[in-house]
Design a protein around this nucleic acid. Sequence first.
DNA 1: CGCATGGTTCGGCGCACGACGAACCGTTGG
DNA 2: CCAACGGTTCGTCGTGCGCCGAACCATGCG
Lengths: 230, 230
Amino acid sequence: MKDGPPIAGIAALIGDRARADILVALMAGQALTATELSEVAGVTKQTMSAHLSKLLDAKLLSMQSQGRHRYFRLADPDVADLIERLTGVAQRSGAVRLKSSPREPALRKARVCYDHLAGDLGVRVLDSFEKRRFVRHVEDRLELTRSGREFCEAFGLDLESAPGRRPLCRPCLDWSVRRNHLAGVLGAAILERCYELGWAKRVAGTRVVQFTAAGERAFCERFSVEGRTR
Amino acid sequence: MKDGPPIAGIAALIGDRARADILVALMAGQALTATELSEVAGVTKQTMSAHLSKLLDAKLLSMQSQGRHRYFRLADPDVADLIERLTGVAQRSGAVRLKSSPREPALRKARVCYDHLAGDLGVRVLDSFEKRRFVRHVEDRLELTRSGREFCEAFGLDLESAPGRRPLCRPCLDWSVRRNHLAGVLGAAILERCYELGWAKRVAGTRVVQFTAAGERAFCERFSVEGRTR
DNA sequence: CGCATGGTTCGGCGCACGACGAACCGTTGG
DNA sequence: CCAACGGTTCGTCGTGCGCCGAACCATGCG
């Protein structure tokens, strides 16, 4: 009755960039919403929706609706175990690389994640902020310190006129680098300011943020970002 | 530097029908040659060759050349562990079925595996032979008993004029049903006889063996095969 | 030596599946 | 009530990759 070895189905499910990103992100243990996951994986919501339903069907994930959100987590510890083994084997295999998708090259360096800066540059900004004690981790959240606030004002950011209850500052997991970058009002304000200063602009139709040569230099200096960005 | 989560690459590798078949077959622990594996998985040697090199690259398999053969086995116990976890999760997930390839339907029932009969019918023949004590397992090999030999002669098989050192009778693992069917000279002779008797013929261009309605009835009676073959 | 057999390489074909745009529901909050 | 936002459904497009036929090397045996 059943088709070929069942493991093929499950493995194929995991063997997709976007879905693997989801699973890895959920290894942290906390439940995430569909939209958050779509950011993590770097795909649109429709695409994510399709992926999530497949993973649900296969019972790799579980979901609970809460208000208008849907929270996803790994279905059970066995799944987490599986992913862990998989990473183990993957490590020693010297990371078989999946054929890199065409969109990759520029996206990795700098791109828009909603309205803030992600990609390599985005991650480095957060690194630098942490090193200079401009931000502090408080549980899962991020807090701007006094010196951080001063720095931001000096850079010409307007953090006060922010609307509603959007967090000022929060970390956002980056799908390409697997590390956090700066989101929230602050993240958005920084990107906005880069546009204003003429350091960068968006490439139409994509999520790529293109820095000018001078803009990149200025940016790196300002944020104490060292080294080449690839 | 590295692309997306490494687990995606490994999982994608396992998430292919043919390759999953390979891995499952090798879970038994004994090393198999490339050609044997191609039969197990139901693909040609070229295709198998491509799969095997990918699995080798990823270090999921190890290989040793011996004479003109190449023997493949699982690279190490961790890989076996991984596959086992995977089957575990797959079980409880209620076997996510991989989109069934177009060739499936008829192939499952009866098909040619090299020159002998495989598929559901092939497996049942061996079952019946075992139950009636026509064959006996001797380590990994199969031996035709005295009564088995009589039965075969009565059916009109010529087992004597077989050329060279090809084994008279050996088991061959079936990729679809995951069970053995009858290979070797005997397996070939049975299929040949079915053609002669007009019970079945091959469908051109495929490996499907098509039985006539009467042929199938006669076949089942002769070999004491019970039940519908779905 | 020639022939059979185990494996690999190359080129072309076809298909499954992931990606997105657009349009559509449901919930929340003003 | 409307506007905004979280998610899903539908149709389409592009492409990666698994498959095979044919041709090619290597080994082993008579």
